[in-house]
Amino acid sequence: MSKVKYYYDPDTLSYRKIEPKKAKRYRNIAFFFLGSLLFGFLGLIFLLNTNLINTPHELSLQRELKNYELQFEILNRKMSQIEQVLGNIEERDNNLYRLYFEANPIPEEQRRAGFGGINRYKSLEGYNNSDMIIASTRRLEIIQKQMVIQSKSLDEITKLAEEKEKLLAAIPAIQPIKNEDLTRMASGYGWRTDPFTKARKMHWGMDFTSPKGTPIYASGDGKVERADNNSSGYGKHIRIDHGYGYMTLYAHLSQYNVKTGQKVERGDLIGFVGNTGRSEAPHLHYEVWKDNERINPINFYYGSLTAEEFENMLKYATQENQSLD
């Protein structure tokens, strides 16, 4: 209810009611609506720029943004787990696999190196969460690079393992005559008495006494280089080239079971014990060569003898007795 205003009329000595002019009234109404409109507009601008009131679309965008932030947090946790697992693999790769196969470890700076050159993340700049997005992207790319390096390293290790497996299969590692077929270990590597001249001379192999016809086995994978009777003193003999500088010789055979050029594997039957060539009794004379040098075969029986059997063989092999050839 609007207030009623009065004024004092000295002529009538009484108060008279002030009647507002219509133009002024309309002007006041106009000012009121204009002020209300301006106040409402300013209030709306204020509210739209604060979090007090949000439109449904803004609420939807806020929920979507929080969901993205949550997904980035989950992604970073997963990347942390991947980095931990990858770090464990890298440690084993450098300190176990590559060390075992005699390969140089991959430097840490090579594994952790970033990406230089131009700004790779320019398209990700200018957003509210640009720092978080760029950091996560850079971290993910480094992990991808580490995985590529590790994958290539494991490929290299696989090749080295295959080569190592071939080497281990090629090294003469078993006794050429089974222990149960032996009569005795007659003579070892070293200075021995010659059975014919009775002079002391170097015996370059080991003599295994067995009955004629006892099976003889290849001590490692390789290729038969010779199977003939054309070497002085050895009689019928076989030479196997194992590669990697290794060669084995089996002498005084009675019969061959392989021929020149044939590939054999460790444990294959290659011939039979005999008494051919410069030999005093049926036995196998066995030699191991490395890089064209004859070495003691006693060090190459780890694949077929127990510790006790090896100890007994070592005792007999070191006795300076008379050889059989």
Rank of each mutant, 00 (worst) to 15 (best):
N179T: 03
S304R: 08
D291N: 14
D194G: 01
F72I: 06
N321D: 04
S153Y: 14
G35L: 07
I74G: 04
F33M: 04
G114F: 11
D93N: 10
D194Q: 07
A218E: 07
A113K: 15
Y301R: 10
V273R: 05
T209K: 14
G222P: 00
N179W: 15
A199P: 00
V148M: 06
L38Q: 05
E109F: 14
G245A: 11
K263Y: 15
T306W: 13
N54T: 10
S279N: 13
T260A: 06
D325R: 14
L96N: 02
H285V: 01
L47R: 04
S210K: 07
S136K: 03
N129V: 12
A169H: 07
T193A: 02
Q110G: 00
V264W: 12
E91A: 13
I157F: 14
K223V: 04
Y7P: 08
E163M: 10
P56W: 09
K3A: 09
G87N: 09
F33T: 07
F39R: 06
N299H: 15
N179A: 02
Q81E: 09
G126L: 12
I18P: 00
A170N: 08
I270F: 08
N49P: 01
N275W: 12
H283R: 04
N128A: 13
K223D: 01
F31E: 04
N292L: 13
S254T: 07
M313T: 03
D221W: 12
L42I: 10
R294W: 05
N129D: 05
Y316Q: 05
Y8N: 01
S130C: 02
A113T: 11
D291H: 14
L140I: 02
T197D: 03
F310R: 07
L61R: 06
S151Y: 15
K223T: 06
L42A: 08
L324A: 05
L86E: 02
N128G: 06
S323K: 09
L37V: 08
I82C: 02
P176C: 11
A307C: 03
M132T: 05
N76I: 03
S187D: 02
Q175R: 11
L52T: 09
A30Y: 13
F41L: 04
F101Y: 15
V4R: 09
K290G: 00
K24A: 15
K152G: 00
E308T: 07
A227R: 11
N76G: 06
L99C: 04
G126S: 06
I106M: 02
A135T: 04
E58H: 07
K166G: 00
R77G: 02
L34S: 07
T306S: 08
E287M: 14
A169Q: 13
D93A: 10
D325V: 09
D93L: 14
I177M: 03
F31Q: 07
A251Q: 09
V224Q: 06
